[in-house]
């Protein structure tokens, strides 16, 4: 329990971009990255449960659907992002970038988890505001994750490494994750009880 609390505390501190894990503990960054990924899954499940609050079966399905979307989109984005990092910002450690990415995912899902009680309440009590809040919370979470990721990756930039190259790599991570996320949401749909956002994947975006 103490371990978990320490880990969460350190991850929250890292969201600010300034905090760095102790360099004397070699396995700590990897532990933080994996811990951030696991915590993200738990937070995403909480949001999924709230987003399906209108229907019990949907809520239960969301407990694995939303974490699935978050985890698989992150995993697919990582190789492309790391390759871009290698090409555009040689000298920037991949592990460090992955830690920033994991912390960004953690912060985005933390936003989702924090909004969850409100979301569940609104889904129960308002036909109009529930879906709006659902979509709004996702947009907010994405914005927070983007800001945290860019800030974190720039804060951990080693000397002599191009800032522009680091930004390109960060953008590559995000673009890849969003592209995968869109199709995974289409596969996993429905997630929200009353919203058709991205349920048709890229086809919906292009055609409509």
């Amino acid at each position: 329990m103490t371990h978990t609390m320490n880990l969460l505390g350190e991850l929250v501190e890292m969201m600010g971009g300034r905090h760095r894990p102790s360099e004397k503990l070699r396995s700590r960054p990897a532990q933080l990255a994996v811990g951030a990924a696991l915590a993200s899954l738990a937070f995403a499940a909480v949001w999924g449960l709230a987003a399906g609050a209108g229907q019990v079966s949907l809520a239960l399905q969301n407990v694995y659907k939303v974490p699935l979307v978050v985890l698989l989109s992150s995993l697919v984005a990582a190789p492309a992002g790391l390759l871009t990092l290698k090409l555009w910002a040689p000298g920037y450690e991949g592990r460090s970038m992955l830690l920033s990415f994991a912390v960004a995912t953690f912060s985005g899902t933390l936003v989702l988890a924090v909004v969850s009680p409100l979301l569940a309440l609104y889904f129960h009590s308002s036909a109009w505001a529930g879906p709006m809040l659902g979509v709004g919370s996702v947009v907010l979470a994405l914005l927070v994750a983007v800001v945290v990721f860019i800030r974190g990756s720039l804060a951990r930039i080693p000397e002599g490494v191009s800032k522009a190259g680091t930004l390109v790599a960060a953008l590559s991570f995000m673009a890849m994750q969003l592209a995968v996320m869109m199709q995974l949401i289409a596969l996993a749909a429905p997630i929200l009880t009353d919203s058709a956002l991205f349920t048709g994947g890229i086809d919906q975006v292009v055609v409509e």
């Binding site: 396995s27 532990q31 994996v34 990924a37 899954l41």
Partner: peptide
């Protein structure tokens, strides 16, 4: 995809336990 997700999540759980032990040792 769900099967893949379960496997990856289990893998992450195992990795986290190992890393925690490693960090404790360090």
């Amino acid at each position: 995809i769900g099967g893949l997700f379960v496997l990856i999540s289990a893998g992450l759980g195992l990795a986290y336990r190992r890393l925690t032990r490693a960090v404790d040792g360090e």
